[in-house]
Design a protein around this nucleic acid. Structure first.
Length: 489
RNA sequence: GGUCAGUUGGCCGAGUGGCUAGGCAGUGGUCUGCAAAACCUCGUACAGCGGUUCGACUCCGCUACUGACCUCCA
């Protein structure tokens, strides 16, 4: 197919490269998923949607994709007074819940948000807590290869030793010597040989609830280990694409590279892809900054910074209107611009079916369509794709108005490709109105019956009777009351 | 402080060594009983200062500003 035309930006080499899978037609894709100890916010939507587009597009190109996106439900130290305490455990204790109860709750909420955003489910969604054995196995492997050491029940990765043999920092562009001077104090510092060494296995403190037995200590896996262990388990020692947010580049992904290389003797990932951040007032939207707006709040409009509610599709479209490697700044004005643009696009989509072919096409449709796919092939340039879609919107509207013509063959192609591009590849759908339908019907019925009351007041019996008769014919029961009216169906 | 990005018209946001991004808002029209929608039209923006070039918003350098990472964070 056109598979060989896809070009993606590989963080590893800081340049665009032609995508060529290791074992065509199969593609292995791993993306860092959420840490489920809080509601997903707008920032979480970005990688989910970015890699959803990649997943969809790769499938369109004919690849057989195995998409793995993990759920992080264990580990990750918290950098505050409760030094060394597991995030999940802390939240659980505060709320008097079982850790797994918290995990379940937020995982379900995350899934619901993703469904609303029309993000396809990954092929496998492994949990870190379900892969402790694999992670321990990986620790042993790294130790056996001599790149880790034990210190008071914890196992640390020996960055210095590793860097003598392999280039530590090649992904994020760090230099080991510089790291020496720039690393802050962390828990367990005194146990490490070097401040930049990172934990593979951490001994649990007494108050730490989530813990597993091991030959080193009762503890929990290190902060970066789960992705290495699970990607290897489901995609193999070498796989095609690893994605995630730019903020994970260092130290998370750098450490993954080191772990995999230390364990296997070679790197595991061919293409690293990183989405940029969503900013709010020019600053990163993030948990630690406390300036985030949850997806739930976007959908309901229930947040001080939101002028109104924004539908999941508006949020999705908003994100797709920027390239995934650019930051995108949140504002009500920008959201509302997206909302209106999306509406125009979707209205054109609904006109497609009633379009009539006539004569010769007044535009070069194949050329525009070619540009659409060229945009996708160019590192998933969705904003460019969308700009061409709006050209097609103009075409659809003009043909519908009888101001332009389209040939039979082009019309078929237009329908097919608009559907493909808008629904299948961009994953945009017409918002479901079912929830509002009952309310809408109520409004419409009240309006109609009020008109009937007005007619009765004017003794316009003909109009009043016509309304009742037609509604009755449609299966409604209309009852006049002293106060006005009642209706049922 | 180190590393890496970015600075585009009212807002958002692409891209390119010379030729229209696109959306939203705004202008003036067509259409229309009115309105809306749709379509057409208009706006000549690329942080500042140097340099390379026939020509730079696009390449190079410097300056300013903003941000990301260096610590959990998408």
């Amino acid at each position: 197919m056109e598979a060989n035309k896809l070009v993606i930006y590989n963080t590893l080499n800081r340049q665009k490269e032609t995508f060529s899978p290791i074992h065509p037609p199969h593609v292995g894709l791993y993306v860092c998923g959420p840490t489920v100890y809080g509601d997903a916010h707008l920032g979480h939507a970005r990688p989910a949607i970015t890699f959803d587009i990649l997943f969809r597009y790769l499938k369109y190109l004919g690849y057989k994709v195995r998409y793995v996106r993990n759920i992080t439900d264990v580990g990750h130290l918290e950098n505050d007074a409760d030094e060394g305490e597991d995030k999940i455990a802390k939240k659980a204790r505060l709320e008097q819940l079982e850790p797994m109860e918290v995990v379940q709750y937020f995982t379900d909420r995350y899934h619901q948000n993703m469904d609303e955003l029309n993000v396809l489910k990954p092929s496998i969604e492994p949990r870190a807590s379900g892969h402790i054995i694999e992670q321990q196995e990986l620790v042993r492997k790294i130790m056996k290869n001599g790149f880790a050491y034990e210190s008071d029940g914890s196992i640390y990765f020996d960055v210095e030793k590793y860097s003598q043999q392999y280039p530590y920092g090649k992904l994020s562009g760090r230099v080991v010597e510089e790291l020496l001077n720039t690393t802050r104090d962390l828990d367990g510092q005194q146990e490490k040989k070097n401040s930049f060494d990172f934990a593979l296995w951490k001994k649990a403190k007494p108050e730490h609830i989530m813990r597993w037995p091991s030959e080193w200590s009762d503890g929990f896996p290190g902060w970066h280990l789960e992705c290495s262990a699970m990607s290897t388990k489901y995609l193999g020692e070498s796989f095609d694409i690893h994605g995630g947010g730019m903020d994970l580049l260092f130290p998370h992904h750098e450490s993954e590279v080191a772990q995999s290389t230390a364990a296997n003797g070679h790197e595991s990932v061919k293409y690293w892809m990183h989405n940029n951040m969503i900013t709010i007032n020019g600053q990163k939207m993030g948990k630690s900054l406390g300036n985030f707006i949850t997806l739930e709040e976007f959908f309901s409009g229930n947040h001080a910074l939101l002028e109104k509610a924004y539908s999941p599709m508006t949020v999705r479209f908003f994100i797709l209107q920027a390239h995934y490697r650019s930051t995108v700044d949140f504002s009500n004005e920008a959201l509302q611009a997206s909302e209106k643009g999306l509406e125009r696009l979707m209205q054109a989509m609904s006109k497609l079916d009633s379009m009539k072919p006539a004569g010769q096409s007044s535009v070069n449709l194949p050329e525009i369509l070619e540009k659409c796919f060229a945009a996708m092939n160019d590192d998933l340039n969705t904003p460019i794709l969308i700009s061409y879609l709006f050209e097609l919107v103009k075409l659809i509207n003009s043909v519908s108005d009888g101001k332009q013509e389209i040939s039979e063959a082009d019309l078929q192609s237009l329908k097919l490709n608009m559907h493909l591009l808008v629904h299948d590849i961009l994953g945009l759908k017409t918002p479901s109105k079912t929830e509002n339908q009952a309310e809408d019907l109520n409004e419409v019925m009240n309006l109609l019956l009020q008109l009937r009351v007005d007619a009765k007041n004017k003794k316009d019996w003909e109009t009043a009777d016509k309304i009742r008769k037609e509604l009755t014919r449609l299966g409604f029961t209309i009852k006049d009351t002293k106060e006005g009216f009642e209706w049922s169906k």
